[in-house]
């Protein structure tokens, strides 16, 4: 097994290779505005580091968000197209699950990433491998009661200490964690979700009002 994992749902552009047992190479950069430019060179770097070629990959794992759309699509489109060109399966993993896995906690906690517009993408977990709620997008103040007293990880938690006073690292998802989680689930025979984006919001689309009257009154 050789999994190529990538995630662009958070400000991090992160790529890793996993041989079914261990992460054999990984690389990440944090730059929320340049996902499209950074991803392919990162894939190239990881393969070079491992001394492998892309056609050795037996499966692609991609973070499906939730995350700001423009960046999120870079990872998904790249993974989809690798799958097409290589003829290998493409597996989706919820980006919040990747963060939860990397948090390595035994008890209940919350994962929250930055959804911008003063909102967070978030979910509650029983432990690092068990998500309790569907990913959602909310204003931190609106979910304060639901997350009260719980430790929290992710940039969304670190950004809003009033709601998440027990926030700590990791801040961003890593493809290494995503790959390890996917490898574990695939080995256990668990089916992973299709690589389709979790947008959670409808597209912003203002229906234009009736055309503007131009005749001076």
């Amino acid at each position: 097994m050789l999994l190529l994992a990538l995630d662009t749902a958070t400000p991090a552009v992160t790529v890793a290779l996993h041989d079914g047992t261990d992460v054999i190479a990984s690389c990440g950069q944090v730059d929320a505005r340049r996902h499209g430019e950074l991803l392919l060179p990162a894939v190239d770097r990881v393969l070079t580091e491992a001394g492998l070629r892309l056609d050795a990959v037996t499966g692609v794992v991609v973070g499906i968000g939730p995350g700001p759309y423009t960046g999120l699509r870079v990872g998904l489109m790249t993974a989809d197209t690798f799958g097409l060109a290589l003829g290998v399966p493409v597996h989706g993993v919820c980006t919040l699950d990747g963060l939860a896995y990397a948090a390595d906690l035994d008890g209940p906690f919350v994962v929250a990433t930055d959804a911008r517009r003063k909102e967070v993408y978030w979910a509650r977990y029983a432990d690092s491998r068990t998500r309790l709620t569907d990913p959602a997008v909310d204003r931190p103040a609106d979910i304060a009661a639901e997350v009260a007293g719980l430790p929290a990880v992710g940039a969304g938690a670190l950004l809003y200490p009033d709601t998440f006073p027990r926030a700590h690292e990791p801040e961003h998802v890593s493809a290494a964690a995503l790959a390890a989680l996917a490898a574990e689930r695939l080995a256990a025979g668990v089916e992973l979700p299709a690589p389709r984006p979790l947008y959670l919001r409808r597209p912003d689309a203002q229906v234009p009002k009736n055309y503007k009257v131009v005749t001076p009154k």
Binding site: G36, L39, L40, V43, D44, L54, D55, Y69, T70, R73, V74, M77, T78, A79, D80, T81, F82, L84, A85, L86
Partner: peptide, 19 residues
């Protein structure tokens, strides 16, 4: 459109690289 272009550019890069 920036976001629309980015989808095509991402696909083209991945396709070219993989092939």
């Amino acid at each position: 459109l920036a976001g629309a272009l980015l989808v095509g550019v991402s696909a083209a890069k991945a396709y070219a690289y993989a092939l």
